[in-house]
Amino acid sequence: MKQYIAYALILGLVWSFVSGDISVLNFVIGSILGLLIVRSLEKLYRPDKDMTFRSITEHLPKLVVYFAVLLIEITKASVQMARIILSPRMDIRPGIVAVPIRATKDASITAIANTISLTPGTLTVDVSDDLTKLYVHAIDVSEPEALRHSIRDKLEKYVLEAFE
């Protein structure tokens, strides 16, 4: 029951933002609608049974850190790409490399894949069937080992802390 309420409150917040009116009444309406939706579509989405208010509050600071890192990385990525695009001789060595990942939960694999797509020079193409490797298209693979290393140590750390 607890996780239904947690999901419903999140959906209520989204409802308030989308309808453009933050008030207690609107938030309550959104939460009630959210509860109905979460309850009726439960079979389609398999809500996380372990999700409780405590796990949310414990993860919240790390999620904030993760989003801050993500925003900085997106800005860096855009500046780097802009530099590559606007340089007269485009000196790129693209390719697809397999990057092993440690995450096991679906949510964290999704988060890592999306983070990789938004960070400098890398783009997720696919996940291997056994969910242990990501196939990453990189714009500069002169050093594949360094690329794997940077994804493992820089990005995956924050994602694992925030989602597992």
């Binding site: 855009s78 802009a82 695009i85 485009m90 790129i92 797509s117 938004l118 783009l123 298209h137």
Partner: peptide, 17 residues
């Protein structure tokens, strides 16, 4: 940029920002 994969780099990152 030369191919579809490299072009996706441009559209996802820069256009998103």
């Amino acid at each position: 940029l030369p191919d579809v994969y490299n072009r996706l780099h441009a559209t996802t990152k820069i256009a998103t920002l």
